[in-house]
Amino acid sequence: MWPNHSLLDLLHIEHPIVQSPMAGAQDSELAIAVARAGGLGSLACAMLSPDQIREQVALFRQAVSAPINLNFFCHEDLRLEQEALQEWRLRLMPYYQEYGLDPNQELPKAARAPFSPVHAELVEAIRPEVVSFHFGLPTADLVERVKKSGALVMSSATTTAEAVWLQEHGADIIIAQGVEAGGHRGMFLDNKVHTQVGTLSLVPQIADAVSIPVIAAGGIADGRGIAAALALGACAAQIGTAYLFCPESKISPLHREALGQSRSDGTALTNLFSGRPARSIRTRLMDEIGPLSDSAPVFPHAGSALSPLRIEAEKQGRSEFTSLWSGQSAALGRALPAEQLTLVLAQEAQGVCKRLGLAGATHAPLDQP
């Protein structure tokens, strides 16, 4: 049915579709729906406590018999320097004044924690089939603990050099994250945003450079994109933004509205919301300050000073200080239930594979629910 079965055989799933883990935008409900349709459901854990992770995985296990991917950040936990915070506060001062907010008010702490021994212990207890990482890999001892638990290790690469590094340091599967992808860039060997690579170029180069399976990510929102990824040497496609349109996603009404109005040039890479480059729908803040600013504090602390502004603006129905994560293909999005969307994507991809004569794509299309 599919030209590449490597991921399907490893995980015993039906379709080469991986639901992207999206912190703050989903819970187990989306992962369950994708898994029911035969894809790989993922749970974003970077903003969840250990108890919340246990609860969400339990809900998944109760609902469906399928593999699950638990995703963690593994960034260096850098200390926020007060001088940097003051510079950022000063840059945001005009907006605080506009909204009548106290610029010196106490700020919330950043909520994204890197993978730690506590998380490794959790993985050992839960025993997920897949553990994926963003921003490289954790320390070698933690990677070894994850692998000994029986989980496959995946991580994102934004360059060929990163993919080779990941393979050399224990990754079992590479996610080739093209620059079109929404949300945070997984870059970790350097911070050169201007040299980031598109999916169409990145996937075949990584596939040629490593000997482990490669999953394509970035700008893939329909069956044409999935088939293209498979033709380029990927074993599957990871899809994020397309699933934000589904009723199972937990994005705000403002985010959903912005996605519905998206266009091909409507996003940009920005570090304003977190301190790391990430692709968002353009907002007033991004347009006025510039999407990338040296004033933004280190990840994940940039968002703390924006939080009061975001909350106040959202009360007024405005998203000018809200991170509206989105890939470049949001205009292709469809507001379907996630299980149905997964089957539609698989059906479309099979049709394109068959027309292209890709090996194995000879079976009848799937029935939709």
Rank of each mutant, 00 (worst) to 15 (best):
W2K: 09
D9F: 13
H12K: 15
I13F: 11
P16L: 05
I17M: 10
S20C: 12
M22E: 04
A23I: 15
A23W: 09
D27G: 09
L30C: 07
I32W: 03
V34P: 04
A35T: 03
L40Y: 04
S42F: 00
M47A: 09
P50E: 07
Q52R: 11
F60K: 02
R61Y: 05
V64L: 06
N69F: 08
L78R: 14
E81I: 14
A84E: 15
R89S: 08
R89E: 02
R89W: 10
R91Q: 14
M93V: 07
P94F: 14
Y96N: 03
Y96M: 05
Y99N: 06
G100S: 10
D102L: 13
L107Q: 13
K109N: 11
K109A: 15
K109P: 11
R112G: 08
P117R: 09
V118M: 10
V118S: 12
E124Q: 15
A125M: 13
I126F: 12
R127Q: 13
P128N: 04
E129L: 10
V130N: 04
F133A: 03
H134P: 06
P138K: 09
D141R: 13
L142I: 03
V146T: 12
K147N: 06
A151R: 08
S156E: 08
A157W: 02
T158P: 03
W165P: 04
H169E: 00
G170P: 02
A171V: 01
A171W: 04
A176Y: 00
G178Y: 03
V179F: 05
G186T: 00
F188P: 00
F188M: 03
D190R: 09
K192C: 07
Q196A: 14
V203Q: 05
P204M: 09
I206W: 02
A207F: 05
I215R: 10
D222E: 01
G223E: 05
G225P: 01
I226C: 02
A231K: 13
Y243A: 06
L244S: 05
P247L: 15
P247V: 11
S249A: 13
K250S: 14
L254W: 12
R256L: 13
R256A: 14
E257A: 14
S262P: 09
F273I: 10
S274A: 14
A278I: 09
R282H: 06
T283L: 07
T283Y: 05
G290A: 03
G290K: 00
G290V: 01
S295E: 10
P297D: 01
P300I: 07
H301D: 09
A302N: 14
G303S: 15
A305L: 10
L309F: 07
L309V: 11
G317F: 15
G317C: 13
G317M: 15
R318Y: 05
S319M: 02
S319Y: 03
E320H: 06
S323P: 01
S323K: 01
Q328I: 15
Q347G: 12
E348K: 11
G351P: 01
G351E: 08
C353R: 04
K354D: 09
G357Y: 04
G357P: 05
L358H: 02
H363L: 13
H363Y: 12
P365S: 11
P365D: 11
P369K: 02
